[in-house]
Design a protein around this nucleic acid. Structure first.
Length: 304
DNA sequence: AACTTCCGCAACCGCATACCT
DNA sequence: GAGGTATGCGGTTGCGGAAGT
């Protein structure tokens, strides 16, 4: 994957990755040493140069680093390349269920504060999370014909998507920790799915780290939050205080409800059913045969 | 097989803020 | 405190592979 990206070229870089002459600033002649600033995809040689330089001198002071290393790049570009790609602890590949769960939850708290969100997903960059949100989450919101920032969509995420991502994660953890290696799946596709990301690229370590470093989630932490939503959805109660505290008003801001029964009315209509007829279709799907399968974002969305 | 459209992601840009002199 | 520079953030772009026709 990484290699394939490297061969890419952009319009602003000439074919073959040759340097492009750039005007430094609104038509002023560029400085002598910046005559040939490169843009676009990084080459393997450039990556090596940057990695070696940082290994010797450390990161930071990006403009001087860019000059001193001999890279014909801006300091900004060097910084971005290092942080998003070359850093040794950067993690790539599909987001796991727990990571998706975290992103969804944190986004409801902080909105598009990608960098802040990324701080709670070790190895993931703000850029990656931002791309995930724009390409996956917003796509699904569009499919649902609602805005990703709308209350309706957030309700769908909180009461349907997130609880089942949590289910998936619980299930995966059970599998990982089970002594018996012969756990069976119903379908070969499940196995393939697991191999594609839910198990093989497990990030339970990172999740534990993120969870423990959570600083303003509120009593009970993320799981209490998510499962409280699940309880509410199924007509239960008791964890409401934890949920409400954890929510910090973000989920229910538009409905301005402040007690359990009121929210239950809004969300479930009293009978464990969404009042939203379109979303209620999901409820049927969720209640049927969900415990033995892994759930990814796409899978959950297919139910509708 | 050839062509078009869609989509994911790396990299860019402009702006805001932090830091330094 | 003013001015300049460096760094960080969020939004946007557009390449290239995948999927569709």
């Amino acid at each position: 994957m990484a290699e394939s990206q490297r061969s890419r070229s952009r319009t602003c870089s000439s074919p073959g990755g040759a340097p492009v002459e750039l005007d430094d600033d609104h038509g002023h002649p560029p400085e002598e040493e910046q005559l040939e600033l490169r843009r676009g995809p990084w080459t393997v040689d450039e990556d090596l140069t940057l990695v070696n330089y940082i290994a010797d001198h450390g990161e930071g002071r990006w403009n001087s680093l860019a000059r001193a290393s001999g890279l014909k790049r801006t300091g900004k570009s060097c910084r971005l390349r290092w942080l998003n790609y070359l850093r040794p602890d950067v993690k790539r590949g599909n987001f796991t269920a727990d990571e998706q769960l975290l992103i969804l939850d944190l986004h409801t708290r902080w909105g598009n504060r990608w960098s802040k969100i990324a701080q709670h997903l070790p190895g993931r960059t703000d850029n990656e999370i931002k791309n995930y949100w724009r390409t996956r989450v917003q796509k699904h919101a569009k499919q649902l014909n609602c805005d990703a920032n709308s209350k309706r969509f957030k309700d769908a995420m909180r009461y349907l998507w997130m609880p089942h991502l949590a289910d998936a994660d619980d299930h995966r953890r059970r599998l990982l920790h089970a002594a018996a290696p012969h756990h069976h799946h119903h379908h070969a596709a499940d196995v393939a799915h697991a191999a594609a990301g839910m198990v093989m690229t497990s990030s339970s370590d990172s999740f534990a780290t993120a969870e423990s470093s959570y600083d303003d989630v509120g009593p009970g932490g993320l799981y209490a939050n998510v499962h409280a939503g699940e309880m509410l959805f199924s007509g239960g109660g008791g964890e409401w205080a934890a949920l409400e505290t954890a929510n910090q008003g973000l989920w229910s801001s538009s409905s301005a409800v402040s007690d359990q029964s009121a929210v239950a009315q809004v969300i479930t209509g009293g009978g464990g059913q969404f009042q939203d007829p379109e979303l209620s279709g999901w409820v049927q799907g969720f209640s049927e045969g969900i415990t033995e399968n892994f759930w990814a974002l796409e899978d959950i969305w297919k139910i509708q």
